[in-house]
Design a protein around this nucleic acid. Structure first.
Lengths: 229, 229
DNA sequence: CCCAATTTGTGACTTTAGTCCTATCGCGAC
DNA sequence: GTCGCGATAGGACTAAAGTCACAAATTGGG
């Protein structure tokens, strides 16, 4: 399954490659499709390669024996994941699952390693990507350890509002496009606790939740919750 | 303050450089000394460069407004830290503080970036290092989110036992060389909780704690605590 | 050796968050 | 429409962890 070159241009990692490398990549990439909920890989398995999200979203997460999940990161289109096992030689550190119907481009393990070893610019790009990822995980650790559930939920809402919020009559409308189960896994708590937290915010007039769409009525108060407790 | 070249040979990052790059590094490195408790850098500051631990240990951590700390990582001799801001362009994601009297070698920000851009092997080495760091943080997130305090303490004890434990008459002796305050920050809880957890394990005959030295009496039972709750 | 400062140990209490269970809602398939 | 299923709401209870206050022990300087 060869991948059209022009489809690679909008993925930053490929955009940055030399034209020669880019067309070589296009020739060796594989396209994979998943339906929502489809498993991409499991923790502990050897990593098949470097994954790029063409469309859809991918949830990278850990699972406890009890079944509780903790999301590490949700990968959006144009981003890549699955790189760390290629360089530290170990297996997948977490699970990956499609949140939406998703199309991924996969660069085989051997091809990806060879590319990083052959192309200095590609290696530097990966270094940048990994740096950002480290920062993200560090801040996740901070939130989990040092902030209460309310603060964590508030932060997710505000982050999404800033990135994707639609200004509206009564406030900013955010569409998380996550079930409460996934939202709970994202903030590291149980589903019921998220329900209660959202209800609470609604009762206080801070947000108005209708299904997956949430309208932020009082941005100030929501922001102040981030530092609560 | 030039650094003797032979002092660099035992730091993996430098060992892997070409002799020319290594001697250039030696010429531009700065040596910094800190006493125990000395602040190396603060979260949010611009990062001055890439740090290498010659001797001593460095605690990388986040602080809450309340003063509670969460350790991300304790850096031992021969390891490096402070790299991520060099490549993602942002500021320090966390604090760094010496746990012991510590000697660091510092490669200026500009020198470090230039080295990674000039020397492909150095970039790949950093990629390996960052990969390991990502895995470490991911597992920290997992522990914080999905495991109880007892399990987290048990895991730290066993990890140290495997890395540094001295076989002894009644079990394996571990010297954490951490105050309970730092141990609490390492597992992400309050000091009192760590005290109680250790006392509990002692009462059950799993460990015997005398000051900072802990003897693991029943490895099996300690290991089984890791999956508790 | 002794004092001050830090570290450790403990009890009592509060708060937060997790669990269990049941009810209701809402959407899609048919 | 309506049946059924998964998602959401919510009440009641439990358990884990955080907090506070203070006592005891240890350590390292002088």
């Amino acid at each position: 399954m060869p991948v059209p070159i022009h489809d690679l241009a909008d993925i930053p990692f490929f955009a940055q490659l030399s034209p020669a490398e880019r067309s070589h990549a296009a020739a060796v990439l594989h396209e994979h499709r998943y339906q929502a909920g489809g498993v991409i890989f499991l923790e502990g398995e050897p990593c098949p390669g470097l994954f790029f999200v063409k469309s859809g979203r991918v949830k990278i997460y850990k699972v406890a024996p009890s079944g509780r999940e903790q999301v590490l990161c949700i990968m959006h289109p144009r981003t890549c994941f699955g790189g760390c096992p290629l360089f530290d030689g170990a297996n997948n550190p977490a699970m990956a699952e499609a949140l939406d119907p998703t199309i991924l481009y996969v660069l085989d393990r051997a091809e990806a390693v060879a590319l990083a070893e052959r192309d200095h610019a590609a290696a530097l790009t990966l270094l940048k990507i990994f740096s950002g990822r480290l920062r993200l995980l560090a801040s996740l650790v901070e939130r989990l350890s040092l902030r209460c559930v309310t603060a964590r939920v508030a932060e997710v809402l505000l982050t999404y509002a800033d990135e994707r919020g639609l200004p509206q009559a009564h406030g900013i409308e955010v569409c998380l496009d996550l079930s409460q189960h996934d939202l709970a896994a994202l903030v590291g708590t149980a589903r019921e606790v998220v329900t209660r937290t959202l209800r609470d915010m609604e009762r206080k007039g801070i947000i108005h939740a209708r299904g997956r769409r949430i309208v932020i009525l009082d941005r100030e108060r929501l922001a102040s919750l981030i530092s609560s407790l």
